[in-house]
Write a protein that binds this DNA or RNA. Sequence first.
RNA 1: GGCCCGGUAGUCUAGUUGGCCGAGGACGCCGCCCUCUCAAGGCGGAGAUCACGGGUUCGAAUCCCGUCCGGGCUACCA
Length: 479
Amino acid sequence: MPSGTVRTRIAPAPSGSIHVGNARTALYNWLLARQHGGVFVLRVEDTDQSRVTQDAFEAVLEDLRWLGLDWDEGPEVGGEYGPYRQSERSDRYRAVAAALEDTGHAYRCYCTAEELSQRRARAQSARRTPGYDGRCRNLTDAERAAFESEGRSFALRFRVPEDRTIAFVDVVRGPIATRSDQIPDFVVRRSDGSPTYMLAAAVDDMAMEITHIIRGEDLVAATPRQLLIREAMGVTETPVFAHLPLLVAPDGKPLSKRWGDVAVSAYRRMGFLPEALVNYLALLGWSFDEKTNIFSVDELITKFTLERVTRNPAIFDIPKLEWLNAHYIRLLPPEALAERLVGVCADAGLPAGSDEGKRLLGLVAPLLSERLKRLEEAPPMVRFLFGPVPPDAKAAKLLDGKRPYLEEVAGALGGVEEWAAGTIEETLRRVATEWDLKPKQAFQPIRAAVTGTLVSPPLFESLEILGRAETLARLTSTP
RNA sequence: GGCCCGGUAGUCUAGUUGGCCGAGGACGCCGCCCUCUCAAGGCGGAGAUCACGGGUUCGAAUCCCGUCCGGGCUACCA
């Protein structure tokens, strides 16, 4: 285990809002760094220039910031190990590739893509291992010259040592050993001069002195190859490795857009709170004990350990996320909730941004806090505050023939001295008794007339917020 | 095909130095209470032959062997 400062990293491709699986990986890396007073590095893997746009890049940073995962080194904050975008590090990869070739750890491979795929197909049909067959591994100078004069370009392949076992300890999966005959010679520099992921990641992790490499399970097989590169470069320090189990969709298949929302931004838009997503992500693959489910970020920082990460894949289960989200919404101070409500209500087309809108939302927020699983659910619940809502089918049915009763209610409410939930309730109960109605029979028609639906925030408080004039108007305008 | 990993209720998981587990917690589901609706909260319930089959043992979810199922990797993708 490396000593000194803990340095972890997340290395997303800047291809837009980050995948929730990557968000979890980022979270675990961040937690470990924070727990040890270490450094969390953000490195952008933008070698595939064609797919990178400035918007996509910004989206990644925005997601991370929204989740609260601040980075100590990386884009926008700098650091001693920069640059932090792979597209700006080409000279380093070039230098390492050249060094590997000079020391004989890598060699030129002149095989063309067509030749390789043909041989791979042949190997496969003959039930042989489909990996590179080592054809250019021991070319003579004459053969090399012949290829060169043909005008062939070449890729640089790593010369995997023979008869070796590459072993490392994965903190979550235990010891892992791979025989080198399982690893075909792999490309480190493409024929166009660009580095492959294998090279770039290994080089950057070495150069940035990353001490703990926490990443997805899909990269376990890449680890021995990166270890080989480190070794060839004379680096003896080995980072701690931890490979996280995959996140899968409810059908057990890998999480993909085909199933539903995989982007962090989608959850933000749906009204999930970052603290809820963070808590949920922490729980997907990790547990503290046999009964605790709720963890604040600070608790996660002190309690998280890689040793307690599980090895089996987890299904991304929205209902549990919603339960956590409801919990965190209830924890929000009313003013904070009101503030967030302004945004979602405005997005839903309600005039929530006005002073009056803000005033109304400030008043209803306490009534909504224990009724929301997602912020997105708020607009329909508060719509009645912004104007009359035509009764829906059920409300209309209930309203049928209630005109006399509602007139009576309006009259009684008109006489209330101080317009407040308490006095309103008193009055309405009195009328109910006079009409010999059970509470539910008495109040649902009023709710229907005023809100247009049979489900709303608590009635008396709702009427108080709506105001006397508007309440009376709606009660008496009922057909 | 080869190498590696995983398999506890619908879901996330606890448990892995074998007995305290005739399997604990949470989400979801069902019911009751509370109640002006919906929630929240309280209480209770259903739901797991611990993938399957052998074996070791006084005793196995936990150890061994085999089988099945799922997944990852096996690219001049990352």
